[in-house]
Structures are given as C-alpha cells and as structure tokens.
C-alpha cells in the first residue's frame, strides 16, 4: 500500500538522508567532566509549568499541561468508570527532538513508562478529579555515549522541577540519580521512601550501592531545592 503523508512537506520520496563516516571517538569525557547541573524553569509561557535541565551537554525539557478536563467530556459512561472521575489521569509523552535524530535511538516508550510510574506514586492525583495532567518531555540534545539511565534520571528531575513550577500538588519532590545501570528515585528522606528503582542488568552488591546512590541523590536534591527557593 502506498502511504503518502500529505500533511507534512517531506521532499522528494527517493532522497536518502546524508550518511557520515562513523567516527570512533573513544574520548571518555562523560565520566571525567564534573557533574554540573544547569536549571531553568517557566520557559514555556503557554503551559502550566515547564523546566529545562542541562548537564554535560544533555539537555532535557519538560512541559506540564494540566489539570485539564478529560477529553472528550466527563459524562459518566460504561467506558469511563468511577476511577477516571475521582482522580486525575497522568500521562507522560517522551520524545526525541528532531534536532537529535540520527545516531542515537533511545527507547522512549520505556523511559516514558518508567518516569510515569515514579510520578504516579508522588502526585496527589485525588486532588484533581475529572481531569488529566499531561507531561511532554523532550530530549533537546544528547551527546554521544550518554547512557539511557542517565537520561532517565535527568528526565525525572526535570519533570520534578516542572511540576513544582506548575504548582500541582505532590507528596514531595522526587529526585533521581543514575550510576552504572542503576537508577534510584527517592521521594522522601525522612520516611526513606523510594519511588523508583530501575536496574538495567545484573549488578553485584546492589544493597550497598543503593546507600551510595541515596547519598548522591541528597546532593542533587539540595541543588534542586536551592534553585527552587530562589
């Protein structure tokens, strides 16, 4: 079947994208550079909240829309049960910016599911009945060699800042850190609440590493807190 996208101008159909000789850069610069975090919030005016985080060339932007009324309407029907009416639905949309396309393909579906789970446990969705909260996450810049877990941790932190910017009610601000295949998201230090743990592959001594990650996350949390208090 011949499917033509008539909605976008895609140019001649037999054009092939330019191909470059793959260059092997084995400069392991990602681990050497200090972990500086640059934060900005409220950049997108026509949203309810937004944030942009940058660290070592990795730029992630999160935009929060909501609470908005559920589409198409909230008349109770067989498909829309009481569950949907009593609390907000929360959606995360994760995409790569068209400026990043080319070499790196992250599993954005998986990333979206992971961050969604974290915020389902953190947001007070019961406060927003009959509504929906949508978060659009976009990776604006992705240097070579940045592992998926680091993107996941950054995205989580970015959404946290964006949600604070939007003023939506949360139990606390989840903060995420990644290290060598393990991503830990801590919601609250007093009650030791962990809302997310992603282990990419089998790692040794997970329990002891978690302690280290938790300490690391305290530092990130401090940074985010200082930024938000400003």
């Amino acid at each position: 079947m011949n499917i033509i996208d008539r909605r976008r101008l895609l140019g001649p159909p037999n054009a092939v994208p330019v191909k470059f000789v793959a260059e092997t850069q084995e400069k392991d610069q990602t681990t050497q550079a200090p972990k500086e975090l640059f934060m900005e919030r409220g950049l997108v005016a026509n949203s309810n909240g937004s944030a942009c985080l940058e660290s070592r060339g990795l730029v992630i932007q999160a935009i929060v829309y909501g609470p908005r009324p559920v589409q198409p309407n909230f008349t109770p029907s067989a498909t829309q049960g009481s569950e949907l009416m009593s609390r907000a639905t929360f959606n995360v949309e994760f995409e790569m910016s068209p400026l990043v396309s080319g070499f790196a393909t992250l599993d954005t579906q998986k990333l979206a599911v992971c961050v969604r789970d974290v915020f389902l446990a953190s947001l007070l969705l019961d406060s927003y009945p009959k509504s929906t909260i949508d978060v659009h996450v976009q990776c604006l810049s992705l240097p070579q060699g940045v592992p998926e877990d680091e993107v996941l941790a950054m995205a989580t932190n970015c959404i946290s800042v964006a949600l604070v910017d939007s003023g939506l009610e949360m139990r606390d601000v989840p903060v995420s850190v990644a290290n060598d295949g393990v991503v830990l998201t801590v919601l609250n230090y007093q009650n030791d609440e962990i809302v997310g743990l992603v282990v990419g592959r089998s790692v040794e001594g997970l329990a002891s590493r978690l302690e280290g990650l938790k300490e690391e996350s305290r530092g990130v949390r401090r940074e985010i807190d200082t930024f938000l208090m400003k």
Partner: peptide
C-alpha cells in the same frame, strides 16, 4: 528553534 538536515537525491 530551527535545525537544517540534509538528504541526497539523484
């Protein structure tokens, strides 16, 4: 934001 990418056509 605007980014230009390229393609090659015969």
């Amino acid at each position: 934001l605007c980014g230009i990418t390229g393609g090659i056509v015969e």
